[in-house]
Write a protein that binds this DNA or RNA. Structure first.
Length: 478
RNA sequence: CUGGGUGUAGCGUAGCUUGGUAGCGCGCCAGCAUGGGGUGCUGGAGGUCGGAGGUUCAAAUCCUCUCACCCAGACCA
């Protein structure tokens, strides 16, 4: 490699220090900038563009299953937040409070929403009277605040952007089905759009959302073997409905509590994309969400005909892909490194020699492969390459997960597996909280999920030895 | 919140022990050449050393206080 001997700022290798690598990539790819507000970052154009790509696709998918967008206030009165006991206990420690408006002290302090369940509940209590008012399927795109002690861009910031869906249903069956459907919607999005393989399953009692009857989750594995919760879908049953007195009159004229769900996905997912697909040259973006899918680099652009050809290619390709033509006076080498850092899936080089031969050079971001492509069927070629890149990076991430997934039959074994190989460890669990706590204490691991698709690896709890038929995937998480 | 560390130009840093008024690399600006993996040469601009106070003829350097950030824990999407 020619690079390295120059005075070039390089990113830290993933294998040397994964955390540092992550920070380097996030900054050098131009995704975020730190601000003077502790724990909060500035989302720069390129980082925000990725979020917009995610948002646009998800929003369409939400609407396709009947959800409608709304916007609720960012402040929640303290008394309202306290209506559901488990909920407030779960969130109280990390809530930010507003105590003054101007120079006036507020009679009741307001929290800045850490999540909006209680506001939606209050609204539902008023708006829902009859079975004819159901279901209600709301979603909002907003930011929320959780006062974390330590922060990292995308993975944990005090303010972060997300979407939160809140739905109200007449029956438990309908709410159950909707919770599951939204989880599968997220999973499909992650796998087919972000090339991020996920495990689907349920959270344990200990790990579920504060106030939920059941939390469904998709979990993915990062390059370093750590787990990242990618999205969650909660089933509230009627617990919030009871606390907020949300009732409707059914067809038999009987008063019933509604059944609710909520589901969310945040900008944290961008951190997941970075850590799952990125390499030592920077980001590797899944083609479907890459703000730039093809970057065109003219070579020797002062030479006769080069720029004309480059503009012509930009024109043609723009009809089908998101394309950027870089005509700046940076050298080609600089541009190569720059767009690799930014994770652009395909680089197209066009120079005098190519034009003579009626061809161009395509370079694939995921494996560095160089392809000499004819200009005659370029659109088809690019289309095909984008598709294969998606498949390749999905497969790579899936293999990493397979290679780092083990089974364990004792806490010691689980700890050893995590210490050496990192990753996921499957083990049977009796369902007791004390056993789960023991794992956390002795192996610093948490239960990630109880997969929908179980496997028969034993019939006794790996901690206490009691009979068990529950398989749990354990890991260390971001 | 507990333990450790660091603050000097946009970024990375030297200088601090033995006080004398700041040096280098990257980046930035201009020009010329170059252009298929961070291109070369020439010429420029940019800091008063996190903040406050103190000692001194004199403080980036010594003393006191303070703020911020980073790393490892605990807490978390």
């Amino acid at each position: 490699m020619a690079k390295g001997d120059k005075n070039v700022e390089m990113i830290t290798s993933r294998d040397v220090d994964f955390a540092q690598w992550y920070t380097d990539v996030v900054k050098k790819a131009g995704l975020v900038e730190y601000s003077s507000v502790k724990g909060c970052v500035i989302l720069l154009p390129y980082g925000y563009a990725i979020w917009e790509m995610i948002k646009t696709e998800l929003d369409a998918r939400f609407k396709a299953v009947g959800n409608e967008n709304v916007y609720f206030p960012m402040f929640i009165p303290e008394s309202l937040l306290q209506r559901e006991k488990d909920h407030i206990e779960g969130f109280a420690p990390e809530v930010a409070w507003v105590t003054h408006g101007g120079d006036e002290e507020l009679e009741e302090r307001l929290c800045i929403r850490p999540t909006s369940e209680v506001l939606f509940c209050e609204y539902f209590a008023n708006a829902i009277q009859s079975h004819r008012d159901l279901p209600k399927k709301f979603n909002q795109w907003c930011s929320v605040v959780r006062w974390e002690k330590s922060t990292r861009p995308f993975l944990r910031t005090r303010e972060f952007m997300w979407q939160e869906g809140h739905t109200a249903h007449a029956t438990a069956e309908e709410a159950d089905a909707f919770t599951l459907m939204m989880l599968h919607l997220y999973a499909d999005f992650a796998e087919n759009y972000l090339a991020l393989p996920v495990l689907r399953g349920r959270k344990t009692e200990k790990e579920k959302f504060a106030g939920a009857k059941e939390t469904l989750t998709i979990e993915s594995m990062m390059h370093d073997g750590k787990a990242l919760q990618t999205a969650t879908s909660h089933n509230f049953g009627s617990d919030f409905a009871k606390a907020f007195d949300i009732t409707y009159t059914d067809k038999e004229n009987k008063l019933q509590h509604i059944h609710q769900t909520s589901w969310g996905l945040s900008t944290r997912l961008i951190g997941g994309i970075i850590m799952a697909h990125g390499d030592d040259n920077g980001l590797v973006l899944p083609p479907k969400i890459a703000p730039i899918q093809v970057v065109i680099i003219p070579i020797a652009s002062h030479k006769e005909g080069v720029l004309d050809k480059a503009y012509e290619l930009e024109n043609t390709l723009s009809r089908h892909f998101r394309v950027k033509l870089d005509v700046s006076d940076r050298t080609p080498g600089w541009k190569y490194a720059e767009y690799e850092m930014k994770g652009v899936p395909i680089r197209l080089e066009i120079g005098p020699k190519d034009i003579e031969k009626g061809q161009c050079v395509l370079v694939l971001r995921d494996n560095g492969e160089k392809i000499v492509a004819s200009l005659d069927n370029l659109v088809e070629e690019v289309q095909m390459r984008l598709y294969t890149i998606h498949k390749a990076i999905y497969e790579k991430a899936r293999k990493n997960r397979e290679n780092r997934t083990n089974t364990a039959f004792s806490i010691d074994e689980l700890r050893e597996k995590l210490d050496t190989a990192a990753g996921f460890v499957k083990a049977m669990w009796c369902g007791e909280r004390t056993c789960e706590d023991a794992v956390k204490e002795q192996a610093t691991a948490t239960s990630r999920l109880m997969p929908f698709v179980s496997e028969n690896i034993g019939d006794t709890c790996f901690v206490c030895g009691k009979p068990s038929d529950t398989l749990v995937v354990w890991g260390r998480a971001y």
